[in-house]
Design a protein around this nucleic acid. Sequence first.
DNA 1: AATGAATGAGGTTTCATTCAT
DNA 2: TATGAATGAAACCTCATTCAT
Lengths: 212, 212, 212, 212
Amino acid sequence: MGIAERRKREKLERKQTILKAALSVYEAEGYLATTMEKIAERAELSKATLYLYFKTKDEIFVHVIGANLRNFSELLEDLYRRRINIGEPLLESFWDVFKQYYDDNPVAFQLTLYYYQREMIRYLSVPLRKVLYRSGSKNVKIMHKIAEYGVNKGLFKKCNPKTLAEVIWTSFLGIILLENSKTVISQKTHMNITRDLAMGILRQGIEKVTDK
Amino acid sequence: MGIAERRKREKLERKQTILKAALSVYEAEGYLATTMEKIAERAELSKATLYLYFKTKDEIFVHVIGANLRNFSELLEDLYRRRINIGEPLLESFWDVFKQYYDDNPVAFQLTLYYYQREMIRYLSVPLRKVLYRSGSKNVKIMHKIAEYGVNKGLFKKCNPKTLAEVIWTSFLGIILLENSKTVISQKTHMNITRDLAMGILRQGIEKVTDK
Amino acid sequence: MGIAERRKREKLERKQTILKAALSVYEAEGYLATTMEKIAERAELSKATLYLYFKTKDEIFVHVIGANLRNFSELLEDLYRRRINIGEPLLESFWDVFKQYYDDNPVAFQLTLYYYQREMIRYLSVPLRKVLYRSGSKNVKIMHKIAEYGVNKGLFKKCNPKTLAEVIWTSFLGIILLENSKTVISQKTHMNITRDLAMGILRQGIEKVTDK
Amino acid sequence: MGIAERRKREKLERKQTILKAALSVYEAEGYLATTMEKIAERAELSKATLYLYFKTKDEIFVHVIGANLRNFSELLEDLYRRRINIGEPLLESFWDVFKQYYDDNPVAFQLTLYYYQREMIRYLSVPLRKVLYRSGSKNVKIMHKIAEYGVNKGLFKKCNPKTLAEVIWTSFLGIILLENSKTVISQKTHMNITRDLAMGILRQGIEKVTDK
DNA sequence: AATGAATGAGGTTTCATTCAT
DNA sequence: TATGAATGAAACCTCATTCAT
């Protein structure tokens, strides 16, 4: 009985090891060069063992992404819980959560971004696609609730909160995307200035027009 | 003499045929499943002939993207030329150009987006990377000039026009990114509502605060 | 523990199987027609398995040659060990070793000869080139030592033993070369007569001129 | 009529151009990297044009070799003509002819050597094989006649002159072979010392034993 | 549970040769 | 005659996945 539990725990630990290894190889070599062989090597396991824990290579990556999105969830939930105490700068806090999410693990973020493309998703098996969908939609919901709170409280201007949440989120997303391509092409680094201006524009663009 | 010209023209046409075929296969099957074999088939040529026109598979795709970015260039340049007559709604026009660029050829846009990722660029040969860089940087420059014009004319608020251009562009980019993933995952279609709200927020966020 | 050993042994055996298969295909079809496909077939393995044991096709052939040169080594070393008991006919014994080396496995000898050409070596990767060099240079050294012994004992005339070894060896080599081309062109067979005359000439040419 | 002649002459010249180009590419890049494309380029012709003059790639090379062997022929014939005036050092003259042949065009010599291998010959079409055979056998015959003269005049010891010719020739051949492989592997250069010792040994080994 | 071994199914690229002009 | 264009036929190599122990 205790044994069964230990087994289960160990199994989970192994899975974690593998996920970590996968992310680490991805960081070092990029998605296209990440082979099962290399993941196994980094996890100090054999290739065949990987298949005891994950049915396919995609499953590994979907789980890596799942974990990453769960981190995001937590940050968002925490924000939602704190919403009342924050007062005015709700948008800033929202934005800060994004930044924190990104800065916590930029590599996982990149991988997530990469996977969340028509290109990648379309070849996923239906079950995996669902896993991915569920992982993501939770965050969408919380973002929605936060936006809703902001609108209701008059912190944000009147508009569909779901859509508003999307706009805020994609503003951030787009910047990261550009940032990524720039990093490789012209070796430039973080675009904090862009992020800040975007924030400023969002603030002014979102606040209630107290007209007159 | 006329012969040489005809030859040249035909060569260009062939190249176009191949690029079109590549894009078409990409549309139907996605990047990872696009093989030289399939491109050749769709172009009604032999695989070997492809290599007569493009040295590698990447070269094909970089050229597809190059063409796509050139279209974007043209739209942007056109806007820049019209800037004076547009008057107030410069931002809207800017935004419209993006929409038009996307709507003209969403597939090519997707491909471009896909390629412009750390992941893809990283494994490109240096010459091809340069081609890609040059294709992209031209557009960046025009966007910059348009933003600059807007700032100078007082249509946009005072800020670094380069950064402003980036913010506007990435706002759009992010939405498309989300749109793409949503299309595959939950079969939803265009997010015009999101685009519109984003536009509205940008407008309000960017306009000069004439306070009082 | 016994398992690990068995594994190792089996691995070696597999390698041998592959090397044998390669040589066999070479014998039947020649170097240029020897493909990985055919080697795999003859070894009753899949093509992919070959790459499990040897990283490239060249590596296979370099190892075939390495094994062949090691046989030669053994024969030479044996001769060197026996040098004292041989007495006078050291040159004959030397020559016999060559003949034995050739007759033991003429096909492997041919392959070795073929590979040991500017043409082939030039396109080898540096590591493989080194392997080849090391395989060969060992034999050179033993031949040298034998020649040295002969010169010191007065069995051969006074001269640089290194050079002498080369002359003896290349005398044999040249004959085989001619023999090979003749076999194909005019279907003639072994040139024992030529070999014997060469031997006679060498004997007379090398022996100490006890003039008077 | 004069026209036909000019045509013929021009055709021959073109052929020469192509053969020269082929040899030149071979020198620069080695046999395996010598493509029709490159030959055409160097000959400043189109690939297709090559096929107007030679039916296959092999035919080109066989003709290159043919020309080379004809040079050898001339040197040998010249020696044969001079045989009476030479007197004693016939062997040296023989040897010198080899050296001259090699030194005149080492690259063509190498190519010839390369082609004259079981490996290469076996894939030749029968007609080409015959061409090669005829090119070579002429030289063999002259060498034979020279050896015969030497034996008859008592310059060489009594033995089968055909075989003797082979021995002398293969002595030289073997050295060149070793020389070639050494050049690539260990960057060493000409082995004049080896050649000289071989010559000395041959002299002593071949001369009539005037015993007592 | 763990793994070494094996493999099927491609993928990109090269090149001698032919064909239409 | 000359050639640009086209191609068939391979060749080498890689990798996710399965199997036997």
